[in-house]
Every structure is written in C-alpha cells, then in structure tokens.
Nucleic acid binder design. Structure first.
Length: 115
DNA sequence: CCTCTGACCGACA
DNA sequence: ATGTCGGCCAGAG
C-alpha cells in the first residue's frame, strides 16, 4: 500500500493503474480496459496489463483479479493456472470454459448502489 | 531515432 | 459463436 509512494520512479501511468487495481475488493474482477479507464488511461488497456505483469514484488496489487473484457483469464503465461486458483479461493464463480462470471463478479466502482 | 512486441479492446465477417 | 484487423501506450534492442 504505502510502498507505492516509496517508489517514485518513472512508473508514470503504472502507479495510477496500481492504485486503481488495489481498489478491487475480494470476489470481484475487472478487465484491463476498465482498470485503465479508472486509472485515467481510456485507451491504456494494454498499458494496464503490462503494468500488472510488471507488478513489483511486495505490492498490494491483486493482478489475479484483473481479467480480460470477456472474463477470460490471461492464458499464455505461467500464472494462468495460479490466477484461476486465487480467484476460486476468493469465491469467484467460473465456468468450465475458464471464464469468470463477469455478471456476478464484475467490479463496479461507481455503480455500487446495490443490485 | 526507428522498429517490434506485449497479461488488451472493440468491430467486422 | 469464433477468427482476423487495426489502434492504443510503453519498454527494450
């Protein structure tokens, strides 16, 4: 958390993305594009994902709660399986297809007026 | 400085 | 429903 301020390197937009990601509660997931938008980067979807991958060790950034816009996890890296376990461990419902129930766990930071 | 790639997203066939 | 194309931002060679 506070470690964020500790690193004042030229992270730039990364920092904002990390802060936004840290706002994600348990049992909730969001897409890179949405996260980037909250971070102030309307078109920084890729930058957001890149930042997630570059998450420094020791940070409070739950990159495992960040998935694709379709709810599918980022397949192609070593954390693919790990991420899935973490989401399930948090109580996130997933389909056998390997996708998250966006309609149920889609984090809505502004539309939290109850459902 | 230029070019390529990358945990992406949205649109179209 | 899936597969392909272009666009966006940032880092590394």
């Amino acid at each position: 958390a506070d470690a964020v301020k500790n690193n004042k390197s030229k992270q730039g937009d990364f920092e904002k993305i990390y802060e936004a990601a840290r706002q994600i509660p348990e049992g909730c997931v969001t897409s890179y594009g949405r996260l980037a938008r909250l971070a102030g980067l309307p078109n920084g979807a890729r930058t957001a994902g890149w930042a997630m991958m570059a998450v420094p060790d020791g940070w409070d950034v739950p990159a495992h709660r960040v998935v694709h816009a379709d709810g599918s996890l980022c397949v192609g890296h070593e954390w693919e399986g790990l991420q899935r376990q973490m989401l399930i461990a948090e109580g996130v419902a997933m389909t056998p297809s390997g996708k998250v129930n966006m309609a149920r766990h889609l984090w809505q930071p502004e539309a939290v007026h109850g459902l």
